[in-house]
Write a protein that binds this DNA or RNA. Sequence first.
DNA 1: CATTGTGAAGCGTTTCACAGCC
DNA 2: GGCTGTGAAACGCTTCACAATG
Lengths: 234, 234
Amino acid sequence: MPPHRSRRRIPEATVARLPVYLQILVDQAGEGVENISSEGLAELAGVNAAKVRKDLSYLGSYGTRGVGYEVDYLVYQIRRELGLDHDWPVVIVGAGNLGQALAGYGGFNDRGFPVAGLVDIDDDKVDTVVGGIRVRPLDELAQIVAARNVSIGVIATPPPAAQDAADRLVKAGVTSILNFAPVVLSVPVGITVRKVDLAVELQILSYHEQRRAAASQGGQLHAVSTDRGRGATA
Amino acid sequence: MPPHRSRRRIPEATVARLPVYLQILVDQAGEGVENISSEGLAELAGVNAAKVRKDLSYLGSYGTRGVGYEVDYLVYQIRRELGLDHDWPVVIVGAGNLGQALAGYGGFNDRGFPVAGLVDIDDDKVDTVVGGIRVRPLDELAQIVAARNVSIGVIATPPPAAQDAADRLVKAGVTSILNFAPVVLSVPVGITVRKVDLAVELQILSYHEQRRAAASQGGQLHAVSTDRGRGATA
DNA sequence: CATTGTGAAGCGTTTCACAGCC
DNA sequence: GGCTGTGAAACGCTTCACAATG
């Protein structure tokens, strides 16, 4: 067995960047690049080279001094660390605008997250076909989760239905939830939730725009320059 | 004029939470709640009460000791700080699955971000109507931005087209970009970019799932418990 | 006397700087 | 010589704890 020493705990900030490195590395591999330096990868990822090195060091010591990192091997190691060495079927709750887009979005299947099911509470939507997936009634959620061994659920319902969706997902045995509803979910300890709120993203941009406007006409403000792990002002 | 002292720089982490508080406060106002304590707001937002107080303190001292915060006034102040006292029209580039969903997603219009335009490079999509918006050719982007005074652009194109979309947006005069393409954009200094990558979110969940699996069958790992500003394990 | 506002301590992340190694 | 791996410093954010106060 190769030197698999990766049972340490990886900082959350690093976990959030590994997928970005992975994407870049796969692209590079596709273009025939065999080795890459922390400097090169940093450039492509838009981050600091020291950060790249520290991030990668959590996986183990897979670089070669004076040379860089072997792209293929790094891809393998990151995949392994992220648990991407096998597929994770997901179930989507809510077949509205967003749920349909997600079900039809190739990026899920392609990147290891096949849509095992798409359910909706509305009978009018049930049995319609979206992106090759037939919408199933909400009642069948538990059955789908069990049958396909789903551990990740996606909530794409209207806000008032989101908590109920979460409760059902948890009851069905799902342990990770990606929530697109602009609602703070309450879940049992041990369940991982990530929230993506499109309007919140826009409101953060609005803040920066407003600031820019105030700066250009009003008094002298400091230059805008931020990076909170996601998003940045170049 | 009320005591408007808010020209200080607000930490990025706080900016990212203000929209969440705002949402909750608007809900509460709708239910007739007139005052709320940091404790109460913290509970609803799923964060620590001290954090709420510190966050709100950046807006100025708008609470009353022994009582709490007046909901309506807080709503007003947060809106003002985020620049939400007027609408921010947005233009969406890419009328595929995701672009269509975004255009049809009520949450944008409702929360102050009307869709001023939806453009696509594909002639077959041009002139189709999506969520009440007629798709326009990509060439008309600059014209739409100028005519409707758009400063926020949304990129919903396939990955290879994203950088070109960004270049065109910047050239047209847009200064903030919300990027849904799984690509690191390169933009001039002074342009704010936020990236939302759905697959990355799933990959982060995958990491936690993988860790859970390793823990339950393998050796003794520490309990999973994370919160990086977005997403959390309860 | 309940609750805010905030110094100060604590903690996680980023960046620097350089020793270690190929 | 070039580049990684990593202590240590710097930074920003979170949490504590309590004085200030309506």
